[in-house]
Amino acid sequence: MNTQYKKGVLELCVLALLKKRDCYGYEVSEYLSNHIDIADGTVYPILRKLKSEGLVTTYMQEESGGPPRKYYSITKLGRETFEKEREEYLKFAQAVEILLEDDENDKE
């Protein structure tokens, strides 16, 4: 699938995960690549973009037996944006589904 097209939706998916709990970058990457077929590295530019837009913040946390990890945490603005875009996306997806199924019916 077209990566440019997927990127906006991936942002939404990352926010959905971070809404549940704070994660470090690798966790987000694993979570997404388990569900969606993307290159593992794509997640980091997305996280950085979300941070520069103020939708997520980061903090460092010491881990037992390892270097401190950078955790990503959703902000209030991130939640607001997520709710708004989630609704928009679901509506859009529904409309697309209807249009595409319509196409299938025409062929029969």
Binding site: K7, S33, A39, D40, G41, T42, Y44, P45, R48, K49, S52
Partner: peptide, 17 residues
Amino acid sequence: EIAAKLGNPAVLASQFE
């Protein structure tokens, strides 16, 4: 294996704004 799954580093770099 890891590098292959991460994707092309030049492409990734271009995705950072």
